[in-house]
Nucleic acid binder design. Structure first.
Lengths: 379, 379
DNA sequence: CTGTTAGCGCCTTCAG
DNA sequence: CTGAAGGCGCTAACAG
C-alpha cells in the first residue's frame, strides 16, 4: 500500500473543500486504467471481480460521482428534455409539468423548464439555448410557428409541438378546442340558456381562437346571437369580464369562458355582483384544472386530463428520441378530445325560491358525488 | 424563406437533416481559426472588424448555435441550477418554482427540476445525478438531512436548503412555522373560538412538526385543550379530516390546518356536512396559495409570499455560486415570517339569522376588497 | 480481460 | 490581432 500511506488530509475532509474527484483519480487510486473504471461504473464490458472491487472501493473512498456533463459530451446524450412554455401561471401548466415530470423520472430523464417568453424572438432564443443540454424539446409556447422553429434548430433535435399550431409534418399533440367549445355551447343550449356570452382568450393564441370559432359556429347553428368579451386566460381578465357582464342589459344567462382560470374569475365577479350561479347565470370553463372542482358552485368544464396528457407527451418524445433518424414515421398530430364534465355551475335554472338557501339540495348532492374524485386526484 | 443562395440542399431543409454545425465548421467557412470564432461569439478578446464579420456571416449561414454542454465542460459553468423537491402537487411548489424561474431567467440561468423522491436514498441519488449539470442546488426535499447531503456531494456545489431542517452552518431559508402557528391560534382565540382542532401535516415532516408544536404551545398558553388530527398536506387528507370533524361531539368551533391544501379540503367536507363557515366553524390555513382567496368563504391563512420567496432563494444561490470559494461568509439561516391574512373563513361568529342568505354583507365586502390582488397576482 | 488513444465541442493560455 | 495546442471529464474503439 505504498500509495495508501499518502495521508492526504484533503481527502479526509469528506468532500468538504476538495475539488470533486474525477474518473482519473479513481483510476489512480484503484491502480487501473480509466477505461476499466468506466466499464465498472457503467456495468458495460468484461471486468474481473478483482478490479471491479478495487474500482468500487476507490470510488467510494473518493466519493466519486460521475460528471454528467462530460458524459453527455462524449455520448451525445443528455438524458434531459426541455420544456418551452409561455409562463407558469395558473394550474394548467403546473399540472402538465407534473405529468411530464413523473414520466421523465420513470424513464430516467431530467426536465429543464423554460418559461415566460414574451415574443417569438425570445422564445426562439430560449429554444436555441437548449442546444447541447437536451435530447429533445416539448414546445408549448404559442409564439413559435414553424418558421421560428426551423430557425431555432440547426440539428435534428426531436421536437414535440403542443402549442395548438400543429405544424404539418411535425409530431404534435393538439386539443380539439373547436369540438370542445361546441360541446360547451350545446350543453348550455340544451339546458335552456339562450343569451350565451363567450369570454375569449387572447387574440393570436391559437387555442383561444379555436375555442372562439367553436363557440361562434355552435351558436350560429343554434340560431342564437353571439357576444364575445376579450380576456387573457387569466383570472384577473375573467374577473374584469364578469364585472362588465354583471351590469349588462339584458343580462346574459350563461357564460362560456375560454378556460377555467377566466371562468373562476368571472364567477367570483358575477357572484359579487349579486348574481346567483347557476340560477341567474350558468358558467362553463375549459381545461378542468383542479380548482374547478373546488370553487362553489363546482365549475362545469371541458376536461382535458392534463397531467396524463403531459405524461403521454413526454413518453412520445422519448420514443422519438430513441427512434433517432428513421422516426419520420411519427409525424402524426395526436388529438386530445375534451370531455364535458357537468358540475353545479351549469345546472338548469332552478325555481327562484329554492335558491335563497345557502346551498340547494341539488348542489349539495353533486358536491358529495364529487368528493371521491378528490382522493383520486390528490392522494 | 430564402436561406441563402448557397444551394446546399441539406441546408434548405431548415435544419431538418443536417448534423448541427460546430465551431470548427464555422471557422472553416469563415477561413479563420476556431479561436477567433470563439472570441467573436463571446465578445471577448480583440478582433478585427473584418474577421468579426466573416465569422458572423459564416455562423449565420450555418445556423450555428453553440453547444452549451461542451461549453459547460470547458468553463465548468452550466448556467443552470437544480431544484430538488418532494413532489409537484398543489400550488405551493408550482408558485415557488414560478418565482425561481422568473429570477433564473433574468439572471441567465436555466432551471432543472427534480421531484417525487420518496426516501432519503432516492433523493440523495437525485442530487448526485446533478453533478456536472448544475452550478448549484436548492433543496426542498424534507428527506434530506445534513448527513445525506454530505454523502451526495463530492465537490463544493453550493446548496441552499429550504426543507425546514436548517442544517447549522449551511446557507438556508426557513419559514417561521412555529411563530405562524402561534399567530393562527391567537387569532382564533381572540375571535372567540375555544374548541380549536389542528389538522397536522405528515409526521416526520419538519415543517408540519413545527406548526404542530406552535399550535400546542399557543393552546397551552391560552389554557385550552388540544386536539390533533393527522393529515398529509393533501386536499384529500384535509377532506377526510373534515368529514371526521363534522361528526365529532362536541363539535369543534375552529380548525387550524397545517396548510391551505388541507384547509380547503376540510372546508369542503365541513360544508358538505352541513356546517357553516365561519359561523359554525372557523377555518385557517397556512401558505396563502392562490386558491385560498378563491374558495368561498375566502380562507384565512398565514401568508408566505411564495413566489417572492422562490425568487429571493434563487438570487441568493446565484450569489453563493458567484462568491465561489470565500463564500463561507453566507452561512446564515434566513427566516421568513408568515403574516396573518384574515379572510371570511375566520370571521367572528355572526348572528345566526344573517347567515342564511347566500352571502352576508361582511363577506361580500371583503371579497370585493380582495379583488385588486387578483390583478397583481395574475396579470 | 485490460490499457492506450482518440475524440465529443468548446474555451483559453501561449506563442507568433 | 491571430492561430496552434492543451485540456474539461468521460466514453468508445482499438490494440495488447
Amino acid at each position: 500500500m505504498d500509495f495508501g500511506a499518502e495521508g492526504d488530509p484533503a481527502h479526509l475532509r469528506g468532500g468538504g473543500g476538495m475539488k470533486a474527484a474525477t474518473i482519473r483519480d479513481v483510476a489512480e487510486r484503484a491502480e487501473v486504467s480509466v477505461a476499466s473504471v468506466s466499464r465498472v461504473l457503467n456495468g458495460a464490458g468484461p471486468v474481473t471481480e478483482a478490479t471491479r472491487n478495487k474500482v468500487l472501493e476507490a470510488a467510494r473512498a473518493l466519493q466519486y460521482v460521475p460528471h454528467s456533463g462530460a458524459r453527455s459530451l462524449s455520448t451525445s446524450k443528455t438524458q434531459t428534455i426541455g420544456v418551452i412554455l409561455p409562463d407558469l401561471y395558473g394550474e394548467f401548466f403546473s399540472e402538465l409539468i407534473r405529468g411530464m415530470d413523473v414520466a421523465a423520472r420513470s424513464l430516467g430523464y431530467h426536465l429543464i423548464v423554460s418559461s415566460s417568453h414574451d415574443d417569438a424572438e425570445e422564445a426562439s432564443a430560449a429554444i436555441r439555448s437548449m442546444r447541447g443540454r437536451v435530447d429533445g424539446l416539448i414546445v408549448l409556447s404559442p409564439h413559435l410557428d414553424a418558421a421560428n422553429l426551423a430557425a431555432g434548430l440547426a440539428g435534428r433535435t426531436p421536437i414535440l409541438l403542443m402549442n395548438g399550431g400543429a405544424a404539418a409534418g411535425r409530431p404534435s399533440i393538439v386539443v380539439d378546442n373547436h369540438g370542445g367549445a361546441v360541446l360547451a355551447v350545446e350543453h348550455l343550449v340544451a339546458t335552456g340558456r339562450r343569451r350565451i356570452v363567450h369570454i375569449a382568450g387572447p387574440a393570436g393564441n391559437l387555442e383561444a381562437e379555436a375555442r372562439l370559432a367553436g363557440y361562434l359556429q355552435a351558436m350560429a347553428r343554434a340560431g342564437l346571437p353571439t357576444s364575445v368579451v376579450e380576456g387573457e386566460f387569466t383570472q384577473a381578465s375573467g374577473h374584469a369580464a364578469g364585472v362588465a357582464l354583471a351590469r349588462r342589459e339584458p343580462r346574459p344567462d350563461a357564460v362560456f369562458a375560454g378556460n377555467d382560470n377566466m371562468a373562476v374569475g368571472a364567477m367570483l365577479a358575477l357572484q359579487d355582483g349579486g348574481l346567483r350561479i347557476p340560477e341567474d347565470v350558468a358558467i362553463i370553463g375549459f381545461d378542468d384544472v383542479p380548482i374547478a372542482s373546488l370553487v362553489r358552485p363546482g365549475l362545469t368544464t371541458l376536461r382535458i386530463h392534463i397531467a396524463e396528457t403531459g405524461r403521454s407527451a413526454l413518453e412520445r418524445l422519448v420514443r422519438l428520441i430513441n427512434a433517432a433518424g428513421e422516426a419520420v414515421a411519427d409525424t402524426a398530430c395526436e388529438i386530445v378530445r375534451p370531455e364535458l364534465v357537468v358540475r353545479p355551475s351549469s345546472n338548469p335554472a332552478t325555481p327562484t325560491e329554492a335558491s335563497s338557501v345557502p346551498s340547494n339540495a341539488g348542489e349539495r348532492l353533486r358536491a358529495l358525488a364529487e368528493t371521491p374524485s378528490l382522493k383520486g386526484e390528490n392522494s
